[in-house]
């Protein structure tokens, strides 16, 4: 059984490489039983989405204003 600490690491790695089937199963079993780690997974998804919006707001062309993300340089 994975520890919560190992599970957080595996959730992070899942964003950077393809997990092996056995790794996915092990993580899935842990998440099924652990609310704290399911919440951690939600937080990683929010973080990724925030990075995407922030990046698009800075680098995008005429998409500006579509999301709520302000260009960080403005208003400083």
């Amino acid at each position: 059984m994975l520890s919560c600490k190992d599970a957080t690491r595996r959730m992070s790695e899942a964003e950077d490489r393809e997990l092996a089937l056995s790794e996915r199963l092990e993580l899935g079993m842990h998440l099924a039983l652990c609310k704290g780690c399911r919440n951690y997974q939600q937080h990683l998804h929010v973080l990724r989405e925030a990075c995407r919006e922030y990046r698009e707001e800075l680098t995008g062309g005429e998409e500006k204003g579509k999301s709520g993300a302000p260009a960080p340089s403005s208003g400083r």
């Binding site: 957080t8 690491r9 992070s12 790695e13 964003e15 950077d16 490489r17 990683l44 973080l47």
Partner: peptide, 9 residues
């Protein structure tokens, strides 16, 4: 992977 996990955490 260690650094990326650390950053996300």
């Amino acid at each position: 992977h260690v650094i990326l996990h650390r950053a996300r955490s």
